[in-house]
């Protein structure tokens, strides 16, 4: 778990969001522009420069009661403003395991 504040110098190579896990159930959440957490990547605040990324991350880290281990994650913004995870790990965090899960009622 890397705290964003441990990342002394924030360098970003493109658009980013702040993501973490929700305290009560561990669900993946994203920091929204109004300083809350959302499970919708599309509703996340997207930063495109290091200063605004740092400001978002610092505010997120203050919220230890609601979210665990916030960090800066890359995203890509498609034409039309649709936001997609920027790497495989983030894709899996958003979409769940890439494998078929056992179905509870099968045998």
């Amino acid at each position: 778990m890397t705290s964003p504040l441990d990342q002394k110098k924030i360098k970003i190579a493109g658009p980013v969001v702040i993501t973490a896990n929700r305290v009560d159930d561990g669900a993946v959440v994203y920091r929204s522009p109004d300083g809350r957490w959302t499970t919708e990547l599309g509703a996340a605040a997207v930063a495109i420069d290091a200063d605004s990324a740092r400001a978002l991350a610092e505010a997120a880290a203050e919220d230890d009661l609601n979210a665990i281990g916030p960090y800066i994650a890359p995203v890509s913004v498609l034409p039309g403003g649709h936001v997609r995870p920027g790497n495989l790990r983030e894709l899996i965090r958003l979409g769940g395991p890439t494998i078929e899960l056992p179905t509870p009622l099968d045998s």
């Binding site: 778990m1 896990n21 159930d25 561990g26 669900a27 993946v28 665990i68 281990g69 790990r89 899996i92 965090r93 769940g96 395991p97």
Partner: peptide, 9 residues
């Protein structure tokens, strides 16, 4: 025995 993984505890 409680971990935090990618999607849940």
């Amino acid at each position: 025995g409680v971990y935090l993984q990618l999607h849940a505890y």
